[in-house]
Amino acid sequence: MAPLGGVAREPRGFSALLIVLAAVPAVYYVGAMIGDLFFETRFLGTRPIEAGEHNLGKWTLRILFASLAITPLRRITGWNWLAKHRRTLGLYAFGYLALHLLTWTLLDVQLFISEYVSWADVQKDLLERPYITIGMLAFLLMIPLAVTSTKAMIARLGKRWRVLHRLVYVIAILGVAHFFMAVKKDIREPLIYAAVLALLLGWRVWEARRSRLQSASTPAPA
């Protein structure tokens, strides 16, 4: 298939643009939180910690979805040069999740910051509050994926790398579940995230079935 618009190769500057764009929300929310908390600015409204934490969480999902959109996008457009950006976006998603978790730990729960909060409290959160357990599980599962994202690791793991990196589907589902369970009553926003994820995963199921049927109907080469 000819690539859409004849864009057979990566346009110049695309990589740099992606790296800069994907960093913008993180820089904004971290900067805005620090400004609002310590320098009297008012970027994030009445509760900057809550706003920063929630938005970093949502951006984790958005960037994770973007990385999951690359394969379908490649198939539809023929822009195969997009492939290598799965890693860029995947690593960014991990970074956003780490910032989300850091915000929760240090600024929201205030472990190590508040004298009224102890390890035991955080332990209770992690073990007894399912939405936190699920969120933490997603973070832990992402660590091996981030660690094995280097070229050397891909080469070393061979086939096992692909199997390991299927964990990203589990992580995405856990992330959306975490969002659902964290909202108080109005589930409209997490529903949108669930719908997007369903689309991304559904496409893969559909594509797998289609290619299976196709290979079954075409006679094997002699």
Partner: peptide
């Protein structure tokens, strides 16, 4: 609360949690 502790609170306009 089943989903969070009620032992401390965030006072609007302040950074540190208070009991």
């Amino acid at each position: 609360h089943p989903r969070w502790s009620q032992a401390t609170e965030q006072r609007i306009g302040r950074f540190r949690r208070i009991p």
